[in-house]
Structure formats: structure tokens, C-alpha cells
């Protein structure tokens, strides 16, 4: 019971911290503006004449998250270390993993909130046609899981350094790899390079968030995709705990 209480307390504090600073509002406004612009202007939502959000709305999410999620995650540990509050946090009667999960959960919930605030686009498509709302829901779930995977990677980079800027840059690069591994031009390039090594291409593309997000966009809740995202999150949070422990020992 106690772990749950501790995680909740930490999550609550982190969420308060987000909304006490302008970061939260700036993030949400930019995320919504980007979504609106790309869906309706670049994605050609109206021109398509489809009652679907897959190729006009969700298509862009891996790319938005590339910059926005590291911006949310960069302060998680870097700031604790810079200000020195890490010392307070880790001398409280809580296990380090509770702090890691609590802080991650707060940021993930925050990203979830930003995602929920895109609801007008769902209303729009329902007003104009009759889309399959199950598909839309699956895609939202996939988008949120993908954001969680990016965020967990940002947790690692944030724990590595005291500087938020460094954390941001490293985490953008790491997330870019997660995208590019499944980006069609890159896949083609890999296939040309390895004429008789399809397995290598498969291994690399299986690490891509795009490959795993595709299913969700089509409304397919494949357990393999869900497990992929959850295992990225689990592995990254575990790595974060190892890094934090290493800092304290040496």
C-alpha cells in the first residue's frame, strides 16, 4: 500500500510543479497548434474526404513527440540534480524506484492530458462523417504509449546530465533513431545495402516506434505492439535507476 501512496505523493508534486510554471501551458498550446496546423493544412484533412484521422492527424505524432516529449522530460532528473533536491528526495523514506515511477507517471499523465485536449478533432470528424471511433480510440492509445516510450528515453538522458539542454539534445537523437529505424526511406536504404540479409533489416525496423504505431493507427491492438512500448518504458526506467545509483556511488 505504502509504495502506491508514495508514488501518488510524488506524482502529485510533479504535476503541481508542471502547472506552477509556464512550461505546461506553453507545451499544451504548441502541441495543439501543431496538431491543428498539420492536420488541416499539411495533412489535407478536408481534401481527403475520409472519415478517418489516421493519415491526417496521427501520422504526425511520432514527429511532434520527437521534440516535444524530450522538452517535457528533460527537467525530470537534471533539475533535481542541479538544484540539489535529489538529495532531499532520496533521503526521504521511499524507495528510489518509487520516485522514478512517480515522476515518470506525472509526465506521462501530463502528455495524456495534452493528447486528450485534441478532442475537437474527433468531434470534427464525427460531425462531418461517421468514422470508426474504435479505430480512433486505438490510435489515441497507441499515441499515448508511444509518447511514454519517448518519455522514458528522456528520463535516461535527464538522469545522465545536470544540464537540461544536453539532456534534450541527446534524447532527441535517441528518439530520432527510434523513428528512423522504421522510416520507409531508411528501410529502403538498408535493404539496398544488405542484399541478402533481410533479418538485419527486420531487427532494426522492429525497434522503430513507427512500425509499432502503425497497427494502432489501423485500429489493431496487437499485444506485441503494446508489449514493445511497455518494455521500452520498463527498460528505460530501470536504466534510469541504475544511472542514478551509479551517480551516488562514485
Amino acid at each position: 500500500m505504502n509504495s502506491w501512496g508514495n508514488i501518488k505523493t510524488i506524482t502529485k508534486r510533479e504535476l503541481q510543479a508542471y502547472f506552477a510554471s509556464p512550461v505546461a501551458y506553453v507545451f499544451i498550446v504548441i502541441f495543439l497548434l501543431l496538431n491543428g496546423f498539420f492536420t488541416f493544412m499539411v495533412g489535407g484533412f478536408f481534401e481527403r474526404g475520409e472519415a478517418s484521422l489516421a493519415s491526417s492527424f496521427f501520422l504526425w505524432h511520432p514527429w511532434f513527440y520527437l521534440f516535444l516529449v524530450p522538452a517535457v522530460g528533460m527537467r525530470l532528473w537534471a533539475d533535481e540534480r542541479r538544484v540539489g533536491t535529489l538529495e532531499l528526495l532520496l533521503t526521504m523514506p521511499i524507495a528510489p524506484w518509487e520516485a522514478i515511477v512517480g515522476k515518470f507517471a506525472a509526465s506521462w499523465l501530463f502528455l495524456g492530458l495534452a493528447l486528450v485536449l485534441t478532442f475537437p478533432v474527433v468531434f470534427t470528424v464525427n460531425y462531418l462523417g461517421s468514422p470508426d471511433n474504435g479505430v480512433i480510440f486505438a490510435a489515441y492509445l497507441g499515441s499515448w504509449l508511444m509518447a511514454g516510450a519517448y518519455l522514458a528515453v528522456s528520463c535516461i538522458t535527464s538522469a545522465i546530465t545536470r544540464s537540461q539542454v544536453v539532456s534534450f539534445i541527446i534524447s532527441v537523437v535517441a528518439c530520432l533513431f527510434l523513428i528512423l529505424a522504421g522510416f520507409p526511406p531508411v528501410i529502403n536504404l538498408l535493404q539496398n545495402l544488405t542484399s541478402h540479409g533481410q533479418w538485419l533489416v527486420d531487427v532494426i525496423t522492429s525497434f522503430s516506434v513507427i512500425t509499432h504505431f502503425e497497427g494502432f493507427q489501423k485500429g489493431v491492438l496487437d499485444s506485441r505492439d503494446i508489449i514493445f512500448f511497455l518494455s521500452v518504458i520498463g527498460f528505460s526506467l530501470f536504466t534510469t535507476s541504475v544511472i542514478l545509483r551509479t551517480h551516488r556511488t562514485t
Binding site: N2, G5, N6, T9, I10, K12, R13, Q16, A17, A20, S21, V83, G84, T85, E87, L88, T91, M92, P93, I94
Partner: peptide, 27 residues
């Protein structure tokens, strides 16, 4: 109870909020 060197505190909270957090995490 621990007061670290340089007395760090969460800068993005009010004093009330900070103490509230400290009390809650102490159960």
C-alpha cells in the same frame, strides 16, 4: 530529518506546497 548543505528546496512550489509534500511523503 535531514537538512542538506545549501538547503535545497523545490523552487517551483510555494512554501506551503513544499511543506505539504514533505509531510505527505513522511506519511
Amino acid at each position: 530529518g535531514y537538512l542538506p548543505e545549501n538547503a535545497p528546496a523545490y523552487t517551483d512550489m510555494t512554501v506551503q506546497g513544499f511543506l505539504d509534500f514533505a509531510a505527505a511523503i513522511r506519511g
